[in-house]
Simulated assay, not measured.
Amino acid sequence: MPYEPPTHTVERSLRATTGAKVIAGVDEVGRGAWAGPVTVCAAVTGLRRPPVGLTDSKLLTVKRRNELSQELLKWVTSHALGHASPEEIDDLGMTAALRLAAGRALEALPVRPDAVILDGKHDYLGAPWRVRTVIKGDQSCVAVAAASVIAKVQRDKMMAELGIDHADFGFADNAGYPSPVHKAALEERGPTPFHRLSWAYLDALPQWRHLKKARTWASGSVPGVEGQLGFDF
């Protein structure tokens, strides 16, 4: 299906209106998984022409996504990954875990960004980062699309490695997301050390329901972030 390639429109706008020179695109993967970390990539691309075919990772075949990731790792000015573990997700909630992972990725960049383009509608980063949120930024913004592809491929590799000792769960194919194979393995064996134990999937598994962790954080809250609104310009 044809799609419009991403552009540098947002990056150019930020440069013109704020004077930002280093702009990072940020995207996440793993938000809806039952197992594994949530992973965030921060990518700095400048205004160079991107590799052909760059778009949201979800629109690419596995083969093309892997090929494009290799191209991007050589092409981007810099990139870094940040992760929040299943335990951190259980303890903090997803919004705060995303903020933690994204902060780790941004702090790991060799040069601190002047501005961040964040995929989606909601700014889960907050201060001190200057953030512009862009709905479907992984399709429309070059830096965010690059972050999308790198994050997806790197997390998939991580999940395949985690699955070596848990082959019945199919992590190499489902990356920790819901699937018939994953559910069947959970029913028989229960959660692995890599599973999120506050997730609702355990409600449907009576024999393992006692392992579920009670949520200590309010839905939609971001522990430690209240009152720290970022820039949304």
Rank of each mutant, 00 (worst) to 15 (best):
P2Y: 04
T7A: 09
V10A: 05
V10T: 07
S13T: 14
L14S: 07
T18K: 15
I23V: 14
I23R: 09
A24K: 09
G25K: 06
V26N: 09
D27A: 06
G30V: 01
R31A: 09
W34Q: 01
W34D: 00
A35L: 04
G36K: 01
R49Y: 09
P51F: 11
G53T: 06
S57A: 14
K58Y: 09
K58T: 08
L60W: 11
R64G: 10
S69C: 15
E71L: 13
L72D: 11
L73K: 15
L73R: 14
V76N: 03
H79P: 01
A80K: 04
P86V: 00
D90S: 04
L92M: 12
A96I: 08
A97E: 04
R99H: 10
L100K: 06
A101D: 05
A102N: 03
L109S: 05
V111L: 09
R112M: 14
V116E: 07
D119G: 10
D123I: 02
V131T: 10
T133P: 06
V134Q: 12
I135E: 06
I135H: 05
D138F: 12
C141N: 14
V142H: 02
A145S: 15
A147C: 03
R155M: 05
R155I: 03
A160I: 12
L162R: 07
G163C: 06
F169W: 06
A172Q: 14
D173H: 13
A185N: 02
G190Q: 04
T192L: 05
F194A: 08
R196D: 00
P206Y: 10
Q207E: 15
R209Q: 14
R215C: 08
W217E: 02
G220L: 07
S221M: 07
V225Q: 10
V225Y: 03
Q228K: 14
L229F: 12
F231S: 11
D232L: 14
